[in-house]
């Protein structure tokens, strides 16, 4: 049961769920949730390949850097969302049109 293919399928489902959440939602925070799901799918693939294919430790280092980058991205993204809410009093993505005109 615990084979490489089952881990690949789980991370595949996580990736597809992240894509659906990112496209279907118009809420900025909900789109960030989709990005977190996609990053987790990538990190899970790294660890699964480390266990089943090459068995050196490099696949454990990369998820750590993915987590660091995700933390930085969430901090800056949520700061932008809160700033946007202070200016426009909404977090609808279609209201972010100031750079268009």
């Amino acid at each position: 049961m615990m084979t490489l293919s089952s881990y690949l399928m789980i991370s595949f489902i996580l990736f597809l769920a992240g894509i659906v959440v990112m496209i279907a939602r118009k809420n900025m925070i909900a789109m960030l949730l989709g990005i977190e799901l996609i990053l987790n799918a990538a990190a899970l693939n790294f660890v699964a390949y480390t266990k089943f294919v090459n068995q050196n430790m490099d696949g454990h280092i990369f998820p750590l850097f993915i987590i660091v980058v995700a933390a930085a991205e969430a901090a800056v993204g949520l700061a932008i969302v809160i700033r946007f809410y202070q200016i426009k009093e909404t977090i609808h993505i279609d209201d972010a049109t100031q750079l268009q005109s």
Partner: peptide, 9 residues
């Protein structure tokens, strides 16, 4: 991750 033996991750 725990089932894959990656305790630190």
């Amino acid at each position: 991750y725990v089932t894959l033996g990656a305790d630190f991750v």
